[in-house]
């Protein structure tokens, strides 16, 4: 249970297992994840932001769409729903964007 908002914590996420049991490490992990996800979803015109003071990653669209994902699997479901496109980590264009080989349209 989150002490801030009362949202029940899920029973356990595989993705959290590699993060040390230290508040600062967990904060850094949240920031790193949010930053990478933001770079991915920008390609589709979305933004991702972890406000840190509340659970969940906030996704927003230019048209005012908004969703909060409480785990990584839900991020992709919500992002695809909001942008209406498939997000594929094997997409060569996405890989070029992440590698800095081209300018992300969403960043212009």
């Amino acid at each position: 249970m989150c002490g801030m908002c009362g949202v029940p914590a899920p029973p356990g996420l595989w993705s959290d297992a590699g993060i040390p049991d230290d508040p600062r490490d967990r904060l850094r992990a949240r920031i790193r994840r949010a930053d990478l996800i933001d770079r991915i979803v920008r390609r589709h015109g979305l933004r991702a932001l972890d406000r840190l003071v509340a659970p969940g990653l906030a996704l927003s669209s230019p048209t005012g769409g908004h969703a909060v994902a409480h785990e990584l699997a839900a991020v992709w479901v919500e992002a695809e729903r909001m942008c209406g496109r498939r997000i594929d980590p094997l997409d060569a264009g996405l890989l070029d964007t992440l590698a800095g080989r081209q300018v992300d349209a969403g960043e212009q």
């Binding site: 590699g18 992990a29 994840r33 996800i37 991915i40 990584l72 699997a73 997000i87 980590p89």
Partner: peptide, 17 residues
């Protein structure tokens, strides 16, 4: 290997493929 980045990658891969 950066664990947070690895989990983002793997979760996206599992979702898509």
């Amino acid at each position: 290997t950066d664990w947070p980045s690895f989990t983002v990658w793997l979760s996206a891969l599992l979702h898509a493929h």
